[in-house]
Every structure is written in C-alpha cells, then in structure tokens.
Design a protein around this nucleic acid. Structure first.
Lengths: 244, 244
DNA sequence: GCAGCCGCAATTGTATGCAATCGTACCGAT
DNA sequence: ATCGGTACGATTGCATACAATTGCGGCTGC
C-alpha cells in the first residue's frame, strides 16, 4: 500500500507511465499527486484537461476522473466552468491540517504500539533507511523526495494502527502536509534535528504507546514550528493597500 | 435542451428534483446519499449507471461523477468493470467508524465550547426541536428521518468547532454512521433515553468543553451499544462450514 | 445429467462531438 | 484616455458513440 508506483518510463515525460491494464485514472492521480507534493507542479497552476490528457495519452474523461479524486484529497481545487488548479493552501488551512494531525496521530501511535509486529518493524526500518539516505543527499530533488519519504513513515504508522478509515484520513493529511511543507517550509531541514522518527519507532518497539504518542506530538509540533505561516499571501486588496 | 430547474418528474420517481443550474452531479450525490442512509436503497444493491441516469434525466457521465464522490465517502463501493454498489459495512467497519468518532468528536466538542455563539446556539436549538418532533412521530419513515436529524446535530458541532478538514471527516463519519445504524440498529430508539444531545448543548452553552467532551463520548458509546454487531454476515465459507 | 465451452445481452470504460461558459482583446463612444 | 460592450478563442460541462468486459444461458459432447 505504501509502495509507490513503479516509475519505469520516467524519461519520456515529466509524468511517467500508467501501469498496465489497470485503472488509468488511478495512475494519473498518483502521478499528479507526486508532482504536486514535490512541487514540480506549482501551487495555483491551472491543470487544463486536454493538456494533461495529451501528456498521458488519454481522453479528457479519464483526466477528469483523476482531477476529481485529487480535489477530494484537497490537493486540487476545482472551480465550476473554470477548471482545476493545484491547491494553494492558506496558512489557516495549514494550521488546520496540523491541528488535525495532532489530534489523530498520537491516538494512532497508541494503537500501533499495541499491534506492531516484526513485519511492521522491518517496514519501518526500511522507511527510515530510505529517509536517511535521502537526507544525506543534497539538492532540491532529494529534499522533495525526503519530504515524501517522511510522509511514508507516518502512513506506515497509520496502517499499523489498523483503522482503515483513519488511515484514509491520514493519507489526505500527509499529502496536504507535504504540500504545506513544500510551500511554507523554512529551513532546509524539515524534520531535521536528530531523527525523531527513529525515537518514535523505538517507543513503538517497546510497545510504549503513550510515549510514542508524546514523541509524535512533539514531532508534529516541530514540523509545524519550522513553517513560516505568516500571512504573506497577498490578495485581500484592502489589506494590501493599507498604509500606502 | 430541457430547461433546468423544473421538477416535472418529481412524482414519477423516488428521487426528487435536481436544484437549478447548479452542479447536477452534486445534486444526484445528495439524493443518493439520503436514499442510502435512509435505507430506501438497500445495502449491496447495484446502482446501474444508465438506470440512475434515466431516473434523474442526465447522462451516465454525470452519474459516474456522483457515484465516484459517493465511493470516496464510503457509501458506495465501485468495482472495476462490474459497477457501483451501495455499501454494506461489516461490523468491523462499523467499529472503526465509531472508534474514529470517539477520537475526533470529543476534541471537536472542546473546540466548539470555546467558540460557540448565540447564532450557533439558535441553530442547535432548531436542530433539537426538529429532532424531538420526529422522535414523537411513529413509523419507519420518521425513524429514518430521525437518524438523519440526529446526524445533523453532530455536523453542527463539527461546524462550530471551526476546522474545515475535520468537518469534512465528520461528514463522512456521520453518513457512514447513519448507514450503520440503519443496518445494525437494535431498539427502535437509536439515541433514545433522555436526550443526550440536549445535555451536550447545555455543556457547550456553559463553555464547559471537557464536560461536553465527556458527554459526547458517552453518547457515542450509547449509540454503539445499541447496535448488534455480532457477525451474522455470512460468507467466509470456511467459517460457515465449520462444525457441519 | 452434467461439465465445460461458446456466444450474446447487459453494462462499464473511454473517446469524441457539441453546446455553454469564461476571459480577453478589440473597438467604438463619450 | 477610459469605460462599456461585443465578438472570438479557449476550455469546460455534458451527451453520445463505440470498444471492452462481464456474466449468464444455452449448447454440445461425454
């Protein structure tokens, strides 16, 4: 589930291949989502149906389905008769995302601590490994990939916790977080310091749910603290003109 | 084209009018959702695109969009190349729905207690009034409406709490709960006893968040306790054949 | 009689065509 | 020069046409 799609044809297009006979809208959604949370697609940009369709070599019908899915996740905003735009979350939305995570994730940690098994631990280890590998690389591409990998850790946690509904919620929250971090992240190191994920995993392995929950809460706070959520966001006009 | 906004076909079918020039897929989703959580559409039943389209006098394109939305909410299950079916939540799913609510709603109550204003209180009162009106009626139709009205109370709470993301989550959870209650509800009185909603509102009015949260938690527990979640659900075959 | 296979009807998946809508550039009037 | 309006291009919303898939029923051969 966490495993990302294969990217075997990445070279041809900024977006890559649709895997075989399977659902193509699904595949397009994945590709677009990755592009959005990697910020290869800038927030606010318009996604023209025909254009995306040409890129993926499908009809607008399929593209529309993919865009609709993304709009449910909050990664795309669809305005009637106007089109689909990459989401451009406001600081307020960003705060709400993190509020939601602060509420949900510690509870997931507690559940996960009670259910975690050897297989899960191995998966976590794998995720941490990949993450640190990316962290030691430099370059914006690596940093974006790191943000995604970091998200995988949290998704893994949600998966282990065993509640499918909350898992879906977390999918959405993690995706939105990634976008927010890419948008408002300040320091290069989004979740830097010493690796908090590792500490959380350690607590989980000890089946110490409450501690895992506490660590997770602090972790989320750290992530949010690294953001610059001051309202630089332009626009409201009357505000923009005040004092000039 | 037929002028939109007319409701000349209202009498002909169980589903009613699509509101005006607005998005028709949205309207169809609403209608179907109501029908599902009222159990006018039985769980498991197949929703044939062409059929629904005829009913609402739209093309399959629009119906597909509506069905896709419902599948995101978990009220409809879409199987590729096979079609869309009204969700038939298992007891396990039901438990997960209530677990999620136990996690989220008390937190919402606390937020809401700090933000509730006169306008909100009036809305709550209105909701309670409607609810008790329906509770005093008899007949299955009234009971179904009561379940919906009861859901409205919880949605109102989520709205007052002020987090748009959690509000959306609650929309989904409330809808799924309604379906679960209709499916597994035991006694006629789903949220009966003395009106817990009233008590919760009272706590909110006192801005006593923690108390509101506690009451809400108990309320959710009561609702779940009224369900019959034993696994009557047939199927797993090897289980079904054990001991014969 | 029954297992397996073939073919058809029903239904979904996808592409495409057409009308409605939006945004912009142009243009004339004040 | 600016404002108002209008005509056009681009793009979406929706319907329809066509291809692919499913599953069911009947048929055949044993």
């Amino acid at each position: 589930m966490i495993a990302m799609g294969t990217d075997f044809k990445r070279a041809d297009y900024p977006f890559a291949t649709l895997n075989g006979g399977e659902d193509r809208a699904l595949a397009i959604r994945e590709q677009l989502r990755d592009a959005i949370i990697d910020r290869r697609l800038a927030p606010g940009i318009k996604l023209v149906e025909a254009e995306v369709g040409t890129l993926f070599d499908v009809s607008r019908t399929v593209v529309r389905a993919a865009l609709q899915m993304l709009s449910f996740e909050g990664l795309v905003r669809i305005e009637r008769n106007r089109g689909a735009f990459v989401a451009n979350p406001t600081p307020e939305e960003a705060r709400q995302v993190f509020d939601s995570r602060r509420l949900i994730e510690p509870a997931l940690a507690i559940d996960a601590a009670g259910r975690i098994g050897p297989t899960d631990i191995a998966a976590f280890r794998q995720s941490l490994l990949e993450e640190s590998r990316l962290m030691n690389q430099r370059g914006t591409g690596a940093r974006r990939a790191e943000i995604r990998a970091s998200g995988d850790f949290h998704l893994l946690l949600a998966k282990v916790a065993g509640n499918a509904i909350l898992f879906r919620f977390m999918e959405e929250l993690v995706a939105r977080s990634s976008l927010v971090i890419a948008l408002y992240g300040r320091t290069g190191a989004s979740s830097c310091g010493h690796n908090e994920h590792g500490d959380i995993l350690a607590a989980l392995e000890r089946h110490d749910g409450p501690e895992a929950g506490r660590l997770l809460l602090r972790h989320i706070n750290h992530i949010e603290a690294d953001l610059d959520l001051r309202v630089t966001e332009a626009l409201p006009l009357r505000d923009a003109l005040q004092g000039h």
